[in-house]
């Protein structure tokens, strides 16, 4: 039984911010559960139902990938999802429509994960303006390190969107300080050395990284990459993370059940409830 009521954006006519959400979750003694999917995988309407299922199954925020032809930071699961989505006719414009549709049934924070060429091609101002209009809370460009991010950070401020950055085990303390200066909303902590994809266990190095990063910032820490089991979620939350992003493990359900999306939806629902439960 949830202790708070969620309103849809239309009912309340506001979008919940990250800080509000993280505070809310913290007050309940939980971590945030943030499921990921690629917009339009395997097609626009099915994908929307999957996101609805996320929300109904206890997601505290959403992370939505815009499909890209050459996703170098992603493993085989997400790349296959990107290709399915692109083949179904998704474009950047359709991705914004996708977010518009999500906003009709939820006000929880929505972050998007993109590759920078998608932003660059449309033009930064245009992209951030549209993102704002769709009710997007945060933008993470997987291939945009702080060094190249002046223009993006400027636009993010102008359109009141959180620019989100990643830190990893290879990131020095000095770099973490540089990153957090530009980052808002939350800091994305990369759990493993590698690309996105399901892993069998959470290493001690991940726990150490969470603790190290905590010394440098008050930003909420969200752990992603390789978080694929309820135990992983509870491990990272217990180690001091404020939330966990689960991507490939859910996408693998979609991939396995492409010919029966109703079954996939049910399975995703129960998996998400389990994942959410493990944040408590």
């Amino acid at each position: 039984m949830k202790s708070h009521q969620r309103y849809t954006a239309e009912e309340k006519n506001v979008v919940q911010g990250y800080s509000e959400m993280f505070l809310d979750v913290k007050n309940r003694g939980e971590g945030a559960f943030i499921p990921f999917t690629v917009a339009g995988d395997p097609d626009f309407e099915t994908s929307l139902k999957i996101v609805q299922q996320y929300v109904d199954s206890g997601a505290d925020a959403l992370e939505i990938g815009f499909p890209f032809s050459d996703p170098v930071a992603d493993g085989p699961s997400v790349q296959a999802a990107d290709i399915r989505s692109l083949n179904s006719g998704m474009t950047t414009e359709r991705c914004f429509e996708f977010i518009d549709r999500i906003r009709k049934f939820t006000s929880i924070p929505i972050g998007i994960l993109v590759y920078y060429n998608l932003i660059y091609k449309i033009g930064l101002e245009e992209f951030y303006r549209k993102a704002r209009k769709s009710g997007i809370n945060g933008i993470l460009a997987a291939d945009l390190p702080p060094e190249e991010s002046n223009d993006a950070v400027y636009m993010a401020k102008k359109y009141k969107i959180n620019q989100i950055f990643m830190v990893a085990q290879t990131t020095s303390n000095q770099r973490i300080n540089e990153v957090v200066k530009r980052c808002s909303g939350f800091l994305y902590v990369v759990a493993v050395m590698g690309v996105t994809g399901a892993r069998s266990d959470i290493k001690k190095s991940t726990v150490d990284l969470i603790k190290r990063v905590k010394n440098h910032t008050k930003l909420p820490l969200v752990v992603g990459f390789g978080i694929s089991k309820p135990e992983h979620v509870s491990d990272v939350i217990k180690s001091g993370a404020d939330g966990a992003i689960v991507a490939s493990a859910i996408i693998d359900i979609i991939t396995d059940k492409l010919d029966d999306m109703d079954v996939a939806k049910d399975e995703i629902g129960s998996f998400c409830r389990e994942l959410k439960h493990s944040t408590k």
Partner: peptide, 12 residues
């Protein structure tokens, strides 16, 4: 030019 790569690679 530039360094448009994921954070994990930057130190390398």
């Amino acid at each position: 030019g530039g360094i448009f790569v994921p954070e994990l690679i930057i130190p390398a």
